[in-house]
Design a protein around this nucleic acid. Structure first.
Length: 259
DNA sequence: ATGGTGGCCACGCCA
């Protein structure tokens, strides 16, 4: 089973890239973030024509998440979850379901803007709600995947210049601690289960030629329970789509499992 | 210290 996550920063603009990527990589499940589409505008037909079904939770202009998946191998998904228990949020950042015994969360963690801002406090509240929700999920499910744009670089080696980013948004100790609270429920960063080259990132600012200079962060993650880590065979960032005309500022990340 | 680029939408917000 191959799964993937990609913050597309507008599915309207990026649909051709997503279609091309699906045809080349044929993942069983693709989680998209920042679709920026209300549900009535979701291009489900374009995916259906490629043999994929979709479920989505979107809104106009901001946020929006979707799961694109093949039902021929996976079967139909279970119930669709679009919120964390006990956390009401108008922002569409969560879509989760089950494929057989595998529980899959596609997440768009708030960016947080700047450390100490109102948006930062919201990010921390959101992550705490996610932790509390997942505490329950881990009691009910053994195999769980959390994938998406976490807007947190887990370690200094996930930052092109840790000194420049020290304490800044996506890199602060408080955000990393919030991620650690989630990891402590039994999740780990699948990317680090494999030998990786240095300086692999998944997001590069549009400004100042950041991608050309590989000044990026690795903030798009696939976390999973240990039983899934053990049967995974690969996890990589595919930087190729970041070079395309009118690219998203994020690259897709994919993983393979013996499932 | 500031602002740079891009998407949405039509101005400023968000990233």
């Amino acid at each position: 089973m191959k799964i993937a996550t990609w913050n597309v920063n507008s599915l309207r603009v990026r649909l051709p890239h997503v279609i091309d990527w699906l045809q080349e990589h044929e993942p069983d499940i693709l989680g998209l973030q920042e679709t920026k589409l209300p549900d009535h505008d979701f291009p489900a037909d374009a995916f259906f024509d490629l043999g994929y079904e979709c479920r989505f939770s979107g809104q106009k202009t901001y946020n929006g998440v979707a799961l694109i998946f093949k039902t021929d191998r996976l079967g139909d998904p279970g119930d669709i979850l679009t919120r964390f228990n006990g956390f009401d949020d108008a922002q569409k950042r969560i879509i989760a379901t089950s494929f057989g015994d595998v529980r899959v969360f596609n997440l768009y963690v708030p960016n947080g803007q700047t450390v100490g801002s109102e948006k930062y406090e919201y990010k921390l509240r959101w992550l705490a709600a996610m932790r509390d929700h997942l505490a329950q999920e881990t009691r009910e499910h053994e195999q769980i995947v959390l994938m998406g744009d976490f807007n947190i670089a887990p370690e200094d080696r996930d930052i092109h210049d840790p000194g420049e980013w020290d304490g800044k948004i996506m890199c602060s100790d408080t955000e990393r601690d919030a991620l650690t609270r989630i990891s402590e429920l039994g999740f780990s960063d699948l990317f680090r289960a494999f030998d990786q080259p240095d300086n692999v990132f998944s997001w590069w600012d549009y400004r100042m030629g950041a991608f050309r200079r590989n000044r990026g962060l690795r903030i798009d993650l696939i976390l999973c329970t240990e039983n899934l880590i053990k049967i995974s065979t690969n996890c990589q960032v595919d930087v190729a789509p970041r070079s395309l005309e009118r690219a998203s500022d994020h690259a897709p990340v994919w993983a393979d499992f013996d499932l």
